[in-house]
Amino acid sequence: MTDTGDSRGLLYPTRLPTFRRVPAPDDLTDVVRWFWIPVWRLAPGRTSRQNLLPFPASNLVVQHDGTVLSGPTTSASYRDLHGHGWAVGTLLRPAGLAGIHQAPKEIRDIEIGFEAPGLYESIRAAMTDPGNVAGQDLAVEHYCRWLREHLLEPDETALLANTMEDVVSGDRSVLRVDDLAERLAVSVRTLQRVADRYVGLSPLAIIRRYRLQEGAARLRAEPDTAVGDVAADLGYADQAHFTSDFTRTLGMSPTAYRRDQRDQRGVSSEVDASGGERSPDPS
């Protein structure tokens, strides 16, 4: 079962607006990892910056103003929230993306408008009261119905791509492309083709993303653990290699990220009556 409590990818969890993850029903777990639903209502002039180190995957997102397909990213990213709004998104599995876009590397680091007749209208109708959980659940039901009607049954290669994702996500000892190819009993060349077709990133980029997500989560949860120990636990040869990867991807060193976390814990977020976060300061 997918762990919807997985905090990897959220660089500053305390800055999140009201946020839910809903697991995919059993018949859709090959195409969707989970549904995610943020709802926000910020005071005039306020901004809430959401910093992310996204999963190496794509998302299909119905927003209050349209539907977008967000491709895989090569670095950390952020989104500034203003005013009020909502979204109902799906974190797509590799096999799910294959049924939506044929060349995921073409949407790397960008999002594009997506034509999904009936999907936007049904979800917008369900989200007339965004903070209402029953309405959110109805939106997910509409989303599931659309996916069942529009996505084909994954073929063997698509399921291999899912297995690749599962192995990298669940086994931190996988650090090299050779390791992953051996675990899947395929050649490195086959692995490269599968990653390119179903994810849009190289196998090495997928591996590094999961390891860096885990590293960020450790730095956040264990403020007294030495950076070198985190690097060693993640299989890095030394602290310098971990620091180099971390800084190149997140734009800051592990030490700077940890310092930001300590500063963030000293700032309390207000929550308004609707349940939306009010960020205390533009960040």
Rank of each mutant, 00 (worst) to 15 (best):
A43T: 14
A43E: 15
A43I: 06
A43V: 12
P44A: 13
P44H: 05
P44W: 01
R46C: 06
S48N: 11
R49E: 11
Q50W: 10
N51A: 03
N51D: 07
N51H: 05
L52Y: 15
L52C: 05
P54T: 15
F55W: 09
P56F: 08
P56V: 07
A57V: 09
A57W: 03
S58R: 12
S58N: 11
L60T: 06
L60N: 07
L60P: 08
Q63P: 01
H64L: 04
H64M: 08
D65Y: 11
G66T: 06
G66N: 10
L69R: 14
S70V: 14
G71P: 13
P72H: 11
T73L: 12
T73Q: 15
T74Q: 13
S75N: 08
S75R: 14
A76H: 08
A76Q: 06
S77H: 07
S77Q: 13
R79L: 15
G83K: 00
H84K: 08
G85H: 10
G85Y: 09
G85M: 08
W86A: 01
A87M: 08
V88S: 02
G89N: 06
T90P: 01
T90F: 00
T90A: 12
L91M: 09
L91H: 06
L91V: 07
R93S: 03
R93K: 05
R93L: 05
P94I: 10
G96A: 02
L97F: 13
A98S: 15
G99N: 08
A103C: 02
P104G: 13
E106W: 07
R108E: 11
D109A: 14
I110L: 14
I112N: 12
G113T: 14
G113R: 15
F114Q: 09
E115G: 00
E115V: 04
E115Y: 04
A116F: 04
A116I: 05
A116Y: 05
P117I: 02
P117R: 05
L119D: 07
L119Y: 07
Y120R: 00
Y120P: 00
E121Y: 00
I123W: 01
I123T: 05
I123Q: 01
I123A: 01
I123V: 11
I123Y: 02
R124H: 13
R124E: 11
R124C: 03
A125V: 00
M127E: 08
M127V: 05
P130A: 04
G131V: 09
N132C: 14
A134Y: 09
A134N: 11
Q136D: 00
L138A: 09
L138K: 10
A139V: 03
V140L: 05
V140P: 04
E141S: 09
H142F: 01
Y143K: 13
Y143C: 08
C144T: 06
R145Q: 11
R145M: 04
W146D: 02
L147P: 01
R148P: 01
R148Q: 03
